[in-house]
Nucleic acid binder design. Structure first.
Lengths: 341, 341
DNA sequence: TACTACATGAGGTGCGTACCTCAAGCAAAG
DNA sequence: CTTTGCTTGAGGTACGCACCTCATGTAGTA
């Protein structure tokens, strides 16, 4: 049989109340008694039944997700996924709050983080550009005993915290490998496009992309990254200008989830027909372009996995359990017309 | 607040005992009363708290996995994963039994399946070649009220059952796309290797592979599939012979998890150095070859995901819940040197 | 009318845990 | 010796649910 708290009491030779005091870190236990109980726990291999504990405790996990208030399809799909999970988790004692945060205002983000109190919130997943303000606020959250994970963008502020998302350097390397092999020729020019090279994920992807290109496809010239800053009007201009300045473009790599404006601009510039195109994040738009043959490959991370992994990690942290990092590693997926289902 | 059984009783105007009779399909309830309770359940949106129910019921999920008694690294990694999960699930009321089944004896497999009784086993995951005997035995399991999923190989015998694994036709298509593009030339010869073309997964992969090759790379000649039948000695001979018969081989596609004997034979035959090679399943062997540059891409399915998905689906079936098929779709992963981590 | 079969209610117990109260014991400090 | 403070035990209640017993009601049948 699976050992229970009663077994601990029996083996340790103490009362149930004392076992309870030890298990739940309540005060009023002498060191010797404490050790005796811990010894018994180890001896019989007791593992707390979390579902029973949560039942007794009337525990509800309250998690907040801070997402950029972007209108992009990628973030939108994250919101959708959160809604779905929320609906399914009613019975799972998990409540999810989604906060929108301004993209370029780290102070506002930090302020929102600072408002979270352990009485209302058990854990927070933060998808934000990495800035000192946000990093510090995340550390303060941890100090207030609120679980924290960095979500998709950014980086965990301290080593103990967790990052939910793909390895962006590896993603860039993968993109470069596909680009290099798909190009099938020794010299070529590749256009690279991003929102902003301030963002850590774009930077890391570029890093990985450049590295593999240098090592394995030295004949390919990678052009300086065009930055669209999420502005639909600017996008068109930037693309058109690049089209004029750089001749013989045979590859296009978009570091970030492509907006419909960006895809439309590329279409108008005639860049799809003659190039190998690689994009990130499988959204409605990239999916369409993939099926039309405009985009050749999309490197993506499964949004459902992202959300569920974040929830699992946050829950483990709240329960004081250590989770299996290999299970929580988010895979880099390569999607083409052939495996898009 | 989340509604409980008490709320049902209140709203339906019946006693708790009657609510219990309805919820657990116990006899002795008039149709009108039954409907009244069901109406109340809908009205207040009651959802059974499964963890509390399992606690009260002292429920332990007992699942059996039937795996081929193969010595291959892929099945071995599934066994490993099952062990890990088993260890982690002690507290999760899940007990896992692993049965080995002979590869070419469908009657033996059917006999094992027929021995399972609902008193001992709640669900079974079957990884077996698809034969009428096994199919029928799986149907009989279902009839005995034991949850069934087809695992990795084969196909669910009836539509309501579930298949845990990748879409093998799509996997073959993906392989063809990579092969075609990596070859970078209009005419080429591709060697294809499998254990046995009797197996459904090999067949489906070949199907997808051929389709994409025909459509998109008509210049590529796909050779008849060599069958190794898992025999290390035979493997070497078959490969050597193929090497003599077919000149100018520029691509190799292995439909199944490659054994070390197969990889060694290819190495000896000098087939790695001059060809684009694509294999299935990321194992210790394929990983090494990938890192050495012998294999160019591995198409794989995450074993941990496979196992956990099977468990989730089996548990949902036992609980009478319907699961989210989109969450349970196993992704086709493409692994190269660049994203292998 | 008396008997039967069935439908329902009332109430209890237990699952493994959390959390609370109260009393008793003990040792050190005054 | 009394007071104070700390440690420990005994015992109860609750969480949401399953499962059981027994009593009572109600309708139909002989």
């Amino acid at each position: 049989m699976i050992p229970t708290v009663y077994d601990i009491a029996k083996v340790a030779g103490v009362s149930l109340a004392t076992v309870d005091r030890v298990l739940n870190n309540r005060p009023g236990v002498r060191k010797v008694t404490y050790d005796k109980v811990q010894q018994a726990i180890k001896e019989i291999g007791y593992v707390r039944d979390i579902s029973a504990a949560n039942l007794a405790r009337r525990k509800v996990y309250r998690f907040a997700f801070l997402l950029p208030e972007s209108q992009g399809p990628f973030v939108a799909s994250i919101r959708d996924s959160l809604d779905t999970v929320e609906a399914a988790k009613i019975t799972d004692r998990t409540r999810i709050l989604v906060h929108s945060i301004p993209i370029n205002d780290p102070h506002a983000t930090a302020r929102i983080l600072d408002r979270f109190a352990p009485e209302d919130i058990d854990g927070v997943a933060v998808m934000a550009q990495e800035t000192p303000q946000v990093r510090d606020a995340m550390v303060r959250l941890r100090d207030r005993n609120i679980a924290v994970v960095a979500f998709v963008s950014g980086q965990p502020p301290v080593a103990q915290d967790h990052f939910v998302g793909i390895d962006n350097v590896a993603a860039g390397r993968t993109a470069a490998m596909l680009m290099g092999r798909f190009l099938c020729c020794d010299d070529a020019r590749v256009l690279t496009i991003s929102h902003s090279m301030q963002a850590r994920d774009s930077l890391e992807r570029r890093l990985g992309f450049d590295a593999v290109m240098r090592e394995q496809f030295p004949g390919v010239e990678v052009l300086p990254t065009l930055e669209t800053h999420g502005d639909p009007v600017r996008v068109g201009k930037v693309i058109a200008q690049a089209r004029r300045v750089y001749l013989n473009i045979s590859g296009v790599y978009m570091f970030v989830s492509a907006s419909s404006a960006l895809l439309e601009s590329l279409r108008k510039a005639g860049l799809f027909s003659s190039t190998v195109t690689i994009a990130h994040e499988l959204t409605l738009h990239t999916k369409q372009s993939l099926l039309k043959g405009e985009i050749d490959a999309v490197i993506t991370q499964n949004v459902g996995h992202l959300v569920r992994s974040a929830l699992r990690v946050l829950r483990s942290k709240c329960d004081g359990l250590n989770f299996d990092p290999s299970q929580e590693k988010i895979r880099i997926e390569i999607v083409t017309r052939e495996n898009i289902h």
